[in-house]
Computed example of a mutant assay.
Amino acid sequence: MFLRKSVMLAACVWALSPLAWASGTHSYDFGQPAPAAKATRSVEVVMGDMSFTPKTIDVKAGETVRFVLVNKGQLLHEFNLGDAAMHARHQQEMLQMQQSGMLTPTGVKEMDHGDMAGMDHSAMGHEMKSGMKHDDPNSVLVEPGKTAELTWTFSKAANLEFACNIPGHYQAGMVGKLTVSQ
């Protein structure tokens, strides 16, 4: 019981953190989200179970790319743009989401006040205003058999990765190299 309450408390604290809620305030030194209409090209990325095809993507600084993400696997997968340090931090967030029951092997469950029953939110100095969400602009979750999109304008040269940060997926090889050149 203690472990369950500790996990739920950690999930609640994370859900109330600025990183979890302020998606509009996220900034990335390698670029920003863009509307699909601004894309100069599209790249299809097929997600298998523990794989991406292609494994490498090359783009140019200033280019806006529309990523079409096709999940042909049997599991929920994520497409997340960032460097290795960003992925390591995001993997911890995704682990908390999984431990809270929000992430299942094949889908996402939005958390609400009812899912956090029995917790004393007032002791944390705030109220839960809405559910825990996966809403980072550099990331999208794709359920099995589904297709999603992410459009991004790359602002400067960088060595990045695209990765699935669902617990264990990155470590199993679900990561690719994204090179942004001048």
Rank of each mutant, 00 (worst) to 15 (best):
K38S: 15
K129E: 12
V140D: 01
T40Q: 15
N80P: 00
K133R: 14
G82S: 04
T25M: 14
V46R: 15
M102V: 04
Q98F: 04
Q99D: 07
T53H: 08
A88V: 12
V13L: 15
T153I: 06
V140H: 02
S23P: 04
M116Q: 05
M50Q: 12
T106D: 06
V59T: 09
L81P: 05
W21Y: 06
T151L: 03
K55W: 01
Q182S: 08
R89A: 12
D83F: 06
N159A: 14
V140I: 10
S42G: 02
A34G: 10
W14P: 00
G62L: 09
P33A: 06
S155N: 10
A157D: 07
F52A: 05
Q92T: 13
C164D: 11
A172T: 06
G107V: 02
R89H: 08
Y170A: 09
Q182T: 04
Q98V: 06
T25R: 14
M1A: 13
Q74C: 10
M132P: 00
L178T: 08
E143C: 02
S155T: 15
L69P: 02
P54Y: 07
E78M: 09
T151Q: 03
I57Q: 07
M102F: 03
D136V: 04
M94F: 13
K177M: 07
I166K: 07
K177D: 12
Q171H: 05
G168L: 03
V45Q: 03
H134R: 08
L75N: 14
P167Q: 01
H169K: 05
Q98Y: 04
G31T: 05
H113W: 07
S122Q: 14
E149H: 03
L75R: 15
V7C: 01
M116W: 11
P105L: 06
V180I: 11
L81K: 02
P167F: 00
R89N: 09
S51W: 03
S51C: 09
P18K: 09
D135T: 06
Q32H: 08
A61E: 11
A157K: 10
F2R: 14
A34P: 10
W152F: 11
L3Y: 14
C12R: 06
D49L: 03
